[in-house]
C-alpha cells in the first residue's frame, strides 16, 4: 500500500519516540500541576476556586493521551495474520510497539486523572 493511499494516522508509524508520548504527557501534566500549585500558593497565597488554567491543562493532557492511544489502537489492528504477534517481522514489530503504546496510554490516562483528583478535593494552600 503506497503512502498516498494510507490514512494519516496509519502513516504516523509508532517508534520508540512515540512509545513514550503518553507517559511524557503524564510527566508534563504532573510537572505543570506541581508548578501551578507551588507558584500559585507561593506568589498569590491561594489558587482560584475554579482553576481554569489547571482544568484546561488537564483536558489537554487527556486529549493528547487519548489521541496517541487511538492512533496506536488503529495500528495494532492492521491487517495481517492472526495473533500472537510475536514474529520477527516488520508488521509484528509495529504491532508490538503499538500495543505497548496503547497500554501506556491507558496507564497515563489513569495517572493524569489521579493527579487531577487532589485539586477537586483540596481547595486551598494549607
Amino acid at each position: 500500500m503506497s503512502d498516498e493511499r494510507r490514512k494519516w494516522h496509519e502513516r504516523l508509524n509508532v517508534t520508540l519516540w512515540t512509545l513514550i508520548i503518553p507517559p511524557t504527557v503524564w510527566a508534563g501534566h504532573f510537572l505543570f500541576s506541581y508548578l501551578w500549585a507551588a507558584i500559585s500558593c507561593a506568589k498569590e497565597g491561594a489558587f482560584a476556586k475554579f482553576p481554569t488554567l489547571f482544568v484546561a491543562g488537564t483536558v489537554l493532557a487527556l486529549a493528547i493521551i487519548l489521541l496517541s492511544g487511538w492512533i496506536a489502537h488503529r495500528q495494532t489492528g492492521m491487517r495481517g495474520d492472526s495473533p500472537p504477534h510475536d514474529e520477527g517481522t516488520e508488521i509484528d514489530r509495529l504491532r508490538f510497539l503499538a500495543k505497548s503504546t496503547l497500554l501506556l496510554a491507558g496507564l497515563s490516562f489513569v495517572g493524569v486523572l489521579f493527579t487531577a483528583l487532589p485539586v477537586v478535593f483540596i481547595g486551598d494552600c494549607r
Binding site: F30, S33, Y34, A37, A38, C41, F47, L107, V110, G111, F114, T115, L117, P118, V119, F121, I122, D124, C125, R126
Partner: peptide, 19 residues
Amino acid sequence: LPKISLGFFSAASEAVAIP
C-alpha cells in the same frame, strides 16, 4: 509543604502500584 502538593505526589505514589 502545602497539602495540595502532597496530594499530587500521593496520587502518583498510588498509581505506581499499577505497573
